[in-house]
Nucleic acid binder design. Structure first.
Lengths: 221, 221
DNA sequence: CTGATAACATTCAGAAGTGAATGTTTCTAG
DNA sequence: CTAGAAACATTCACTTCTGAATGTTATCAG
């Protein structure tokens, strides 16, 4: 009951960090999350028991249980861990989309760099959200943080009035297209995937060009 | 061991169908598959035990076990059942795409009619395919059948040389976009979804118009 | 240096799920 | 009308997973 309050008080008393112990703890936590994501990716979420994850992390099941009260806790944390890990890549991709010339290769690179296999674990967890309110809340919280960061990048590249009106929604749709592509990789060959991207290239690149031409421009009202 | 051969011989001897018994059997099978898909959709594949599915189907666990030797068998069959059930909708959607005027509402209708919630079960099963070769084979077999049917519709609407070269790949990408949209519905409001569709409408509709203008035309070589 | 506490480890009991094994009923061919 | 097979039902044994309970070790404030 009062654990949370006690801990807060202690943390306040000691300052924000107490490195040695805390550091070890956070490393264990990180190892567990990394192992969880790797396990989800390679064996599937359903097949990833907490025991298997702890084993892969090289910690005991007890350590896992110390950090995460339940399997759901772990998954919720894994969602955050995955998103945090891909923030950099997403930021880089956005900059690239609106600075590099929109050639067909650009889309191939986006597909390869910005949509790594790790996303399969994300899709599985996203679908879990459908039936787990707590996971859905965790997802929303994390994706909101990601959206804020994305918006900051876009505000650098575009004048404010344009961002929410045209660039943001297009980027969402653009991302959705690649999410669909990524999902279908499960049952497609790489050649088929490339063919689909190639088929959609003209329209996407055209819109990209149109948006690029608006960079730095301002729109009144 | 010889069950398969014996059965084949018997079927050949008696003709392709022996209705009354066979009918009851197939009805049970269908109920199981329907229940499985409903369960997958409403509770998630992971949470859908064979017992729960049998219960929902209103049959005993024994009946289930008689029809499907393993849980994987059931899922493989469910993949086929889901695809078979959506064939008609897909065919109708394709006809609609290339006959109706490409207005923004068209895309909203496509989203609503051609991508029902039932697809969430499909996405979960698709992701299972990543770690289950048998499921992947089942998926490929079914989706090939679906592709053949789709091609037949397209050949009606377009002269042959165009189908594989331009129309088919575009349709794939078009579908991928909506798959991504559908997937993200898990963590989006309907308003957000509509905004994304609206943002992508111009480019998609333009391409659709371009393809429509090729209907009935022929290309030599 | 010492008590308190966080971090980690081990054991345990209960729940659930799967498929094999073994009945029982219903139907149909001959 | 009867043998036999298919459809359906029940029971059972086995494994696996999870989280609670409880024990041990390492760190730090005073």
């Amino acid at each position: 009951m009062t654990d949370g309050r006690d801990r807060d008080r202690r943390v306040r008393r000691l300052g924000v960090r107490h490195p040695p112990l805390q550091a070890r703890s956070e490393e264990t936590r990180d190892r567990l999350l990394e192992a969880a994501l790797a396990c989800f990716l390679e064996e599937g979420v359903a097949a990833s028991s907490t025991a298997r994850i702890a084993e892969r992390a090289g910690v005991t099941r007890g350590a896992y249980l110390h950090h995460f009260g339940s399997r759901e806790d772990l998954i919720a944390a894994a969602i955050g861990h995955l998103m945090a890990g891909t923030m950099g890549s997403i930021e880089a991709t956005i900059r690239r989309l609106f600075t590099e010339p929109p050639a067909p290769e650009l889309l191939l690179h986006v597909w390869r760099d910005a949509y790594p296999d790790a996303y399969f674990a994300g899709y599985e967890m996203m679908l879990l959200c459908r039936h787990a309110p707590r996971l859905r809340r965790a997802w929303k919280q994390q994706s909101d943080a990601l959206a804020r960061r994305r918006r900051r990048v876009l505000l650098e590249l575009f004048p404010e009035p344009l961002v929410d009106g045209r660039v943001n929604p297009f980027l969402e749709g653009f991302a959705d297209f690649f999410r669909g592509i990524k999902l279908m990789e499960v049952v497609r060959t790489e050649a088929e995937t490339r063919a689909v991207i190639a088929a959609m290239s003209p329209v996407l690149l055209e819109e990209l060009r149109a948006l690029q031409s608006l960079r730095g421009a301002t729109v009144d009202a």
